[in-house]
Design a protein around this nucleic acid. Structure first.
Lengths: 351, 351
DNA sequence: AGGTAGTGTGGGAGCGCTCCCATCAGTGAT
DNA sequence: ATCACTGATGGGAGCGCTCCCACACTACCT
């Protein structure tokens, strides 16, 4: 007996070895039970489970991570400042879906902000250390180097909203093009003709697609597209406010606004108020996301609902599949890895 | 040579051993350099650092955690549903302070919600596995079993807001009693005499202290305390709305309200509006926290500012000290472990 | 010269798991 | 009875670190 066995140090947490001794089996068998391997007889399994319960055994994560070369953790990376994260319901809704789906698993979810250069530096270090098995990337801009870094480190990743039509990473998105069409067609059906659009950040592919939808809906209905009615926003409230003022100045006669997000719409509403325009009498307003603020705005905001929580859930599904596929030389890239969910227009009194 | 050395597997991340070989030193020396030990000669240190850079070495966290029995991670535990977390600026401000302070260290911050029973179950498991070196507990209710669990597991913890005057855990709080006095004295100085108070959740000690401050400010000014002017809230907007309606019904002549939080004040404002009361003409309103919504409310809300970010920073400081003290048999509990920060009244047009 | 402290440094012995190979008993086929 | 499998099991060999003891060496005292 080698002087001091693992047993000696009283008070410490029980180890696999101790559980094995208690159950009268070998280490390997306990490991099999803990990990749910089918190749264990029922009797043995029961004995081990009893020993685990008696000893209050909890596996040591660090030891497992070291031996198995996995962490059982994934990160939700938000390439925005924390402020944005809290200000925009999009993120919290996404987090809700992700959290709900992951809580059925043994995986741990980490929330990482990478808004500043310093934070990105830390994140790179973090990823290089392979401290997570996979990454969820939300709201990625076209020129973001993060996806490439991930690919280089061979870390599975899923993004919400492809960077372009040629996205190679698995992604989950809603039908931005169709959603925008719904919004515009709704406004047209309400008799509006001078419909403006405050876009999202145009380096986000989804925002571009919404512009496409806006344009096509107008064209297909036989109306021309007046470029002066399109103003770039950035998904924020301030951006919406600023864009709305620019539009009003340039085009005082507009009678409807399709905003790139509900938050943007809130900013636009403020600007409309300040300009003495009534909603919806003078100007109809439609938002995007159908987040909580749409319901709470005064007047309640018509909005294009995208199933953000559902998107979060699907992202986890995709990522977990991706992570699992890293073990066997399984089929890769054959299944549908680009998910697109449909949107729905929720009409309220702002239009 | 034992068939396949650690060296063999190409493509894998470099290990300590490989860095040592490259630098022409022993494993121990590299470890010392990595961990900033002073007992390394400058020349050796430089050689090791060069090897680290050349190889792009990043320490394996799991191996370190296993060998050193620490995780270099701490958790911010929010014993509330996620919804509350996002709805109340208190939490996000706290997170901002915590995040800022911890980003100077090597520690990783984990955000854990423990609102539902299920989540609490998971948390207990998580803590039992000792996956964090320490815990930050915010918004703890009087009967919460979490602090005891932490103590039993011998996990260092710091709470924001003691559970009672006899709190044993290190804590960081603002001067709730004093803050409430400031609010009431302000209203008295504005000539208000029928001052109501919508409390926070009374199972939160800080909320009780605010009631004490409210009472004493009134008494000390020679005014009686009318119990009918005190209504229990719960820090939420709905709670504030409901409480305000109850107060108006019971005491239509009130001329001022001191709300337990800004969010509560927002709910109260809504109820006041619905009752046709003008702010501040008919009823003056004062909130607590001085969060972003205080500035954005219509009219802008007078509020008692508590330095929440600062509180977050101080909590990290305390916790890190606590964690560090676990190694040597250092002095324990002698230093000031109960921090109380002062509040400040920010007067705006609601009073 | 012989001690007596330091400094740097190398490397053995684990930390508590997972992986995988060897082993063993049982089962049906030959 | 022998053989070939198969399912269940034990335990050796790591995973990549940290800790700590041992071993130079180099001053600096007696």
């Amino acid at each position: 007996m080698a002087s001091q066995g693992a047993r000696g140090r009283s008070g410490g947490r029980p180890t696999l070895e101790e559980v094995a001794a208690r159950a009268g089996v070998g280490r390997g068998t306990v490991s099999r039970v803990i990990n749910g391997s089918p190749r264990v007889s029922d009797a043995t399994r029961a004995a081990v489970e009893a020993a685990v319960a008696e000893l209050g055994y909890v596996p040591n994560t660090a030891a497992r991570a070291l031996a198995a070369n996995r962490t059982d953790a994934i990160a939700l990376v938000v390439p925005e400042p924390e402020t944005r994260f809290f200000a925009e319901p999009y993120f919290s809704d996404m987090l809700k879906g992700v959290g709900a789906e992951i809580s059925d698993t043994e995986m741990q979810l980490l929330l990482i902000f990478a808004g500043s250069d310093r934070e990105r530096q830390r994140l790179a270090q973090y990823l290089a250390a392979h401290r997570v098995d996979g990454v969820l990337l939300v709201s990625v801009h076209a020129d973001d180097p993060l996806p490439d870094l991930l690919a280089q480190l061979e870390i599975p990743a899923v993004i919400s909203g492809p960077r372009s039509s040629a996205e190679t990473l698995p992604s989950v998105d809603s039908d931005n093009y169709g959603g925008a069409r719904q919004a515009v067609e709704h406004l047209l059906s309400r008799g509006r003709r001078r419909i403006a659009h405050i876009t999202g950040r145009l380096d986000v592919y989804g925002a571009q697609r919404r512009v496409d939808g806006y344009r096509d809906a107008l064209s297909d209905a036989g109306h021309g597209v007046d470029e002066a009615l399109i103003e770039e926003g950035d998904f924020t409230e301030e951006g919406g406010h600023r864009a709305m003022r620019a539009l009003l100045e340039r085009h005082p006669g507009l009678d409807a606004v399709f905003a790139g997000s509900d938050v943007t719409a809130a900013g636009a509403r403020q600007a409309l108020r300040e300009a003495g325009r009534r909603i919806p009498d003078d100007v109809a307003l439609v938002g995007y996301d159908d987040s909580a603020i749409a319901r709470h705005l005064d007047p309640p905001l018509t909005s294009v609902r995208q199933p953000i929580e559902e998107m979060g859930r699907r992202m986890i599904d995709l990522l977990l599949t991706e992570v699992a596929d890293r073990r066997p030389s399984a089929s890769r890239g054959l299944d549908r890895r680009q998910v697109v969910l449909t949107t729905e227009l929720v009409a309220r009194s702002s239009s």
